[in-house]
Nucleic acid binder design. Structure first.
Length: 424
RNA sequence: CGGAAUGUGGUGUAACGGCUAACAUCCCUGGUUUGGGACCAGGUGACUCCGGGUUCGAAUCCCGGCAUUCCGACCA
């Protein structure tokens, strides 16, 4: 895409009302737009990043036999009455509204009830199980206090996966598959080294659940990290019993602030019992369905990336989720040889469907470099008279200070000869 | 939900209770410049968050809202 066509602009100054680093950076770079406190929209660059995060998650969900659907945001009170989660005494974050005829409606804050209710229409026999269903869907939570930019908001995208199994054992096996899938996802999202499988409260139906916590100053949680075992314990459940269960010595732990980017839960039969979701087994006996639910917040992931993968000049996106594969910067004046060369490179790469941002604007070099660093595309290629004289284009990784001149053909090859091993 | 701070052109800031609300940036015109937000000249843009009150006079003081941010509580 041509940068001259982008409707968003970068800012030099930080909006004074934002103090969270992720919000400051993403607003300055033109990735997000704040509507009200805790409610953010995504602009072209930000939406590309969000969609890339979603795509990584989608691929991994499909890899563990997930089937993608989309449930509704508007919710029927009657369904939620069955688990007693409509009552404000039990769930105090509902946004509630009404139809013209006064029927009560709610805006979804999660989907256990409606999806379990829906599955009663499709699950009858043991032959119908197991099934794994997921979606990317907007959740609404009337938080008493939104905070930390896009990391704790009132309206946000969530990937929620639900598993429906014959037995507890089958459910436990799938739970482990999801856990491994999540580890892979956060590695692909560039957060692998900082994200820990964290023991947390399991609620009513299991001793523990697992949270995926990314070490991050802006995080709301406190976790105790065990470096050798590469796991952590949430402060909420930190006690001698947990240490004993995990065979861990307290002195090997160190406390870190962290942000919860994902969690996985065994739900037992709580929801299937309440909604009447059961199956008939091979002996004609009626059995409850065992369930689990598994969440990841893609927008929060984006916030955590902004917090952890950035420097004083701007963002440093990981390859797989960067808004573009390459930032092509032309320093030549319109009509100059350098500019013409840049145009040629842009068209050539576009022909090969390489997703690049082309800075074709008529502004000073300094401004282009500053914007390029702020936007944070992993690779920058500068075309100028100077670079052409030196033999081609100057390429530089965003995360590095070293640049290098390479022939134009080599640049084209880098982005068009893609193989399984490369990240372009 | 308890506590605190802050609301002034699009953005960032300034202005003793007293002149036409100032400066920078952004934006527009023209010129110059082209490897780290460069320079010159001119120009547009604000009922100072809203509603009351005090005063000869309010951006400034008082009261009430609303909004934003932070701390705390809350977060199957």
């Amino acid at each position: 895409m041509r940068q001259s066509q982008l409707f968003t602009k970068t800012r030099k100054e930080i909006p004074s009302e934002e103090t969270a680093k992720n919000a400051q950076l993403l607003l300055r770079a033109g990735f997000i737009h704040k509507e009200i406190a805790g409610v953010y929209g995504f602009l072209p660059l930000g939406l590309k990043v969000l969609n890339n995060i979603v795509q990584v998650i989608r691929e991994e969900m499909n890899a563990i036999d997930g089937q993608e659907i989309s449930m509704t945001a508007l919710q029927d009170k009657a369904v939620w009455d069955k688990t007693d989660r409509w009552d404000d005494k039990n769930v105090d974050i509902w946004f509630k509204t009404k139809l013209k005829n006064d029927s009560a409606l709610g805006l979804s804050f999660t989907h256990e009830e409606p999806i379990t209710n829906m599955m009663t229409q499709f699950v009858r026999s043991y032959r119908d199980l197991p099934k794994f269903v997921y979606q990317f869907q907007t959740k609404f939570r009337n938080e008493t206090r939104a905070k930390s930019g896009i990391m704790r908001t009132r309206e946000f995208l969530m990937k929620d996966l639900y598993s429906f199994c014959h037995t507890q054992k089958e459910q436990d096996i799938y739970y482990d598959r999801v856990k491994n899938s999540y580890i892979k996802i956060f590695r692909r999202l560039g957060l692998g080294e900082k994200t820990y499988v964290t023991f947390a409260s399991g609620g009513t139906f299991s001793k523990y659940s697992h949270e995926f916590q990314t070490v991050c100053e802006a995080g709301e949680d406190e976790i105790y990290v065990h470096d050798e075992k590469n796991i952590a314990i949430n402060k909420e459940v930190m006690n001698p019993e947990v240490l004993k269960d995990l065979g861990i010595d307290e002195k090997d732990l160190h406390m870190e602030k962290a942000s919860e980017v994902g969690n996985i839960f065994s739900l037992g039969t709580r929801f299937s019992d309440a909604m009447g979701l059961s199956y008939t087994d091979e002996f004609g006996e009626k059995k409850p369905v065992w369930m689990g639910s598994y969440g990841i917040g893609p927008a929060r992931v984006m916030g955590v990336l902004a917090e952890t993968l950035s420097d004083d000049r701007g963002m440093i996106w990981p390859h797989e989720i960067a808004p573009f594969a390459l930032h092509l910067v032309s320093l030549g004046k319109e009509g100059s040889d350098a500019h013409k060369k840049a145009e040629e490179i842009y068209e050539e790469l576009r022909k090969h469907k390489v997703d690049i941002l082309f800075d074709d604007r008529e502004v000073g070099a300094g401004e282009k470099f500053a914007d390029s660093d702020l936007i944070g595309i992993p690779m920058r290629a500068v075309v100028s008279e100077k670079s052409l004289l030196a033999g081609g284009v100057e390429i530089k990784e965003r995360k590095s200070d070293k640049d290098e001149i390479i022939p134009i053909e080599q640049l084209i090859k880098m982005y068009t000869n893609c193989c399984d091993d490369c990240n372009h």
